[in-house]
Design a protein around this nucleic acid. Structure first.
Lengths: 194, 194, 194, 194
DNA sequence: CATGAATGAGGCTTCATTCAT
DNA sequence: TATGAATGAAGCCTCATTCAT
């Protein structure tokens, strides 16, 4: 119990700091201070800074994937499912503001040393996510909701669309951060139907 | 003459290294060694590591925007224009491999300290890009090629779509890296037309 | 306990090195090696090299001023007081040999960057010293020991006289380093009495 | 002629900068820029930064000693001679403000590396100065102007007294910077004559 | 002679990690 | 287990000096 608690305290502090300042500018000191524990204690729960980072990232994915699985089981139209997923994640991103690279993969850019540890974990999860979303899309195709698109590519495209919605507020500030506007583009494309 | 050459050598080395290892894990030493110059020399051309980074990023944007402007002037359908832009940039990204954050904005994640220097420069350029693409889209709307979408949001969505195309090869390796597949999703969406 | 000890070890090493080699040629590395601690440890106790320097200087002033205050309280003729102060400080200077700029103000010469940190501290202490010595002199005037001189100027003159005594051994080596000879000049001047 | 000119330009620039910022914080770049010559040029006239510094210091001493010799020859009372010397040097110091360590010897503190080059030069000159002033004082003793003091110690004391006059303005700002007040202390001491 | 671009040694400082308590 | 003082590797940057033009 105790153990769980401290581990959680560390993760919670790390989430916020990594989100705000990124991996490199967040020091272990920052994290342990925010978690109100001693510096060395972090090393009782995590092998090193990188593995703590991986845990943090992984946490996000776990939550995301759990949500995906939950939605998956519900009895909804595929469009509705994707709509809900987008809603949920957009809100989540806003909560962990400052572009926390959750669905974003930009961590790829992190650097080799870190990536060696992060990549396998992240990749596995992203693939999981892609598969789950691809299933929803495939479902939608079967049910005649969607056109015959390549499900996995559409899934990736969906993930990036959520991202777009997030950046809208950054670069088009006037625009009310309406997720639906972006999502609508995902569903209907820009081309005129003839 | 000399001067121009060395500046270019530094930028060229920096582009590759920053792309491969990111800002933090690329050392000035790495860069100058790759550029085959002395460490101090870099500081004759750039105030510090950050400003070198900004220059590198900016260079990409300048090239990108120049291409945009060139395409803009040509006498082509908007769809065709976007198609060409996507082609060009996808190839460019492949050349500078490993997800160099060109159109990607992920630099936002860099961290505050760096961002203070990078943000103003990047933001200006991203806005320029959005405006130029939004014009193409607006054009397409007028010419009845596109639906009545919000041009700037669609522009951002377009940029992210290119990114998607790029990630396809990372996460869906079997998939022939056919840009058109992803782009087609951008144009036509996933929904069935009724 | 630990903490106090290391701080002292650092200061002690720094005193010797700064005295011998001055601020610029003493490296933090030198100091930590002399103190037999790791380089980084110094930064747990001092914000940076300059603040360590300030602490060292300040330490000397604190000792000097404490001595002044102690003498001040004693029941002695002003001449005797000044005599003792001169004795004490001369010995102290000899102990910290090589012209450590203790009473000397030469630090003024240090340079702007450093001085920004050192000046406020040093100035305050020098002023304190001048005031304390000026009081002794004023006392001496009241008690008819001294002529009616401007006490603060005489105080400064006194401080410089001690310095002179110190330099005697450097430039007039034959001369037995008799503090009294110089001090006698301070008391009686060079002019013949008529 | 040309050569002389450039050498002079360098020295002139160096004097000002060394006086203001000290040896370490004055860069060769600073000096050559102030002298409006190329960086490398300085090395055609001076072996290195240290030897330039020595030349600058030496320049001051040469001027000082020339003045001493000139005064020496004049037909004046010793008191008057010392008075004039003090006047001249005080003005000189004010001109080269910020406590340029001219008569001051504080350079002793400079550091070993530098001192190896500076010491012999400085010492020789300081000794010259002491001898010349000691002669004046000896003269004064013979002519019954001065008491029977040790001339060389009095000479050193005299040099330090000038310094005192200079610091008066730094630490006792209200005090009109009257050199005579301090000098009077040198002549008459502080003790009451009985 | 003069230039100033280039060099690279070396300094200060940060910070992930360890370890004695 | 928990602590946090101590470590020391490694990074950024400056600047005296050199050398090709």
């Amino acid at each position: 119990m105790r153990k769980k608690n401290i581990r959680k305290k560390i993760i919670d502090a790390a989430v916020k700091l990594f989100a705000r300042k990124g991996f490199y500018e967040t020091t272990v000191n920052d994290i342990t201070k925010a978690a109100k524990i001693a510096k060395g204690t972090a090393y009782l729960y995590f092998k090193n800074k990188t593995s703590l980072y991986v845990s943090v990232i992984e946490g996000h994915f776990v939550i995301a994937i759990e949500y995906l699985q939950k939605i998956q089981k519900e009895d909804l139209a595929s469009t509705e499912k994707l709509q809900r997923i987008a809603d949920e994640w957009m809100n989540y991103m806003l909560k962990f503001r400052s572009s926390f690279p959750m669905f974003s993969i930009e961590n790829i850019n992190l650097t080799r040393r870190i990536m060696k540890a992060v990549k396998p974990v992240i990749f596995r999860h992203i693939e999981e996510m892609i598969i789950l979303i691809a299933q929803i899309i495939e479902d939608g195709i079967k049910k005649n909701e969607f056109r015959k698109v390549e499900p996995r590519i559409a899934a990736l495209h969906f993930l990036n669309t959520i991202r777009t919605g997030f950046f809208v507020q950054l670069f088009i500030p006037g625009m009310s951060m309406d997720k639906n506007v972006t999502l609508e583009l995902f569903f209907n494309g820009v081309k005129k139907r003839r």
